[in-house]
Amino acid sequence: MNFEVIVANLPKLLEGAGLTLELVAFGLVGGAALALPAALMRVSPRWWLWAPAFAYIFFFRGTPLLVQIFLVYYGLGQFEAVRDSVLWPILREPFWCAIIAFALNTGAYTAEILRGAIQAVPVGEVEAATAFGMSRTLSLRRIILPRAFRIALPAYGNEVILMLKGSALASTITLLDLTGMARTIIARTYMPVEIFLAAALIYLGMTFVFVQLYRLLERRLSRHVVGAR
């Protein structure tokens, strides 16, 4: 085990970790923005509302993230119409392609988590809101969604961690995220064990910090529940 190689390349690996965090953060924000409307559409009784949401969730949960990244990055770039369009300045950048793919992917999973949570809100509470004369929108805003977010919280934390690890696939479209940086360093040093171990520890560190922060958040949001830890 050659620790010097790890120390010498640590700054580069941390730089890669910075890009990883950026990709995951943007991806999660985009995913959340997609998930809320998709989940609301998904629980709608009207077919023309739930059907598109169902199709979206079905496709992005049913195909590998790697394939989705390739479709966005190499796939769209094949079409001249896309290359001539106003979107090309964004789509030509691997950074944005990765974020688009991540957002679409995590958005689909998050929408399913939210749908489950919305449907898990106790019927009595929804009925009580109606009894108070709340409209459907008002009860959604004041009762159903706040309850659903709390119910969805643990499952969503899991999804964030999955997204962090899935972000390693960004290295396949020339991005020098933590994994991409590690692979580039290995190409020069031929020390895969040392460098990948260092990268793994950095991923582990990021997950650890996230889990701690998330636990604080969960505790704060459940402080009304007796005995919640």
Partner: peptide, 18 residues
């Protein structure tokens, strides 16, 4: 400099103008 996993992907990006 942009680095690719395979030579084929590098050609794909040359063709797309990236």
């Amino acid at each position: 400099v942009k680095l690719y996993d395979t030579q084929e992907n590098a050609y794909l990006d040359l063709a797309s103008g990236r």
